[in-house]
């Protein structure tokens, strides 16, 4: 009997899907806590950013990664993952020096596309983590960056499979642009209460600061202005442009390289 087995890079069983979904929900709450937070009207104490989350999120990421690799990860997948992680880390380290050029997402999107959502998720985590280790960027922001990058990679893997050729490239470019803005927005959401500050009743405040207890819509408004003022115009757009350009120009060659790597690892074994 012959059973062809395609390189299922990081297979996602129903259980893994459930774990991923739950973890994503927790991640969303943790990122958007300023909008979720409901202050007890009677309380007068000051609202601090929940530093607890900085400890919790790594725990959640670790559980997800353990779940995804549960049952052992194929040595080939591991090698491919290692290579892409390393290349991503180098690209990020290189582009960190040149303002506006940000090349992490380009390979992350292509890798997720070729090797699937589970692989994309892990690649997002490992890429950002490796580049942080390389460029000494380990900090409280790192777990959140890993989470959002993981979503970007997973999303690329979930794009419809049927589309090929030029349409595929166009789709990937579009997704890349979207992912860049989304990443910027989400990371701003994380940094907003820290950077713009939290309004304390009766004390100082800046006008873009987060106001605990205010309606979510009002805070969202403040946040959107903050993000528009600080990053959307400059940094995020530059990143989206370079990513789109990189996918459009280098995409075909890199896709075929990645697919060759996926093909080499294809097995047909006969049982006799």
């Amino acid at each position: 009997m012959r059973r062809p087995a395609v390189l299922a890079a990081v297979p996602l069983r129903p259980r893994s899907v459930a774990v991923l979904a739950l973890a994503s929900v927790v991640g969303v709450i943790m990122l958007f806590w300023p909008l979720v937070l409901r202050v007890d009207p009677g309380a007068t104490e000051r609202v601090d950013p929940p530093f607890l989350f900085l400890v919790l999120l790594p725990l959640i990421l670790v559980v997800v990664l353990a779940e995804v690799s549960e049952g052992g990860m194929d040595a080939r997948v591991l090698a491919v993952l290692g290579v892409l992680t390393a290349v991503n880390a180098v690209l990020r380290a290189l582009s960190a020096g040149t303002a506006g050029v940000e090349l992490v997402f380009f390979l992350l999107v292509l890798g997720g596309r070729v090797f699937g959502p589970g692989f994309g998720y892990v690649l997002g985590c490992t890429s950002l983590f490796a580049s942080a280790l390389l460029t000494a960027g380990v900090g409280s922001w790192l777990p959140f960056q890993m989470l959002v990058a993981a979503w970007v990679g997973m999303g690329a893997g979930l794009l419809p499979r049927r589309i090929t050729g030029r349409a595929e490239l166009a789709m990937l470019v579009g997704y890349g642009v979207l992912a860049c803005y989304a990443y910027g927005l989400l990371m701003n959401m994380w940094g907003w209460p820290f950077i713009a500050g939290i309004q304390v009743p009766g004390q100082d405040s800046s006008e873009l600061a987060y106001v605990p207890g205010a309606p979510a819509a009002e805070n969202l408004h403040r946040f959107l202005i903050y993000t528009l003022l600080t990053s959307t115009g400059g940094w995020d757009t530059a990143r989206a442009l370079t990513t789109a350009l990189a996918i459009a120009l280098l995409g075909p060659a890199v896709l075929s390289t990645l697919r060759r790597a996926a093909r080499t690892a294809r097995v047909v074994r006969t049982d006799t």
């Binding site: 052992g72 591991l78 993952l81 290692g82 390393a86 490796a130 280790l133 390389l134």
Partner: peptide, 12 residues
């Protein structure tokens, strides 16, 4: 996390 750790070691 052995696999993930090995991936990271390979990457580094």
């Amino acid at each position: 996390l052995y696999e993930i750790g090995t991936t990271m070691v390979v990457a580094i």
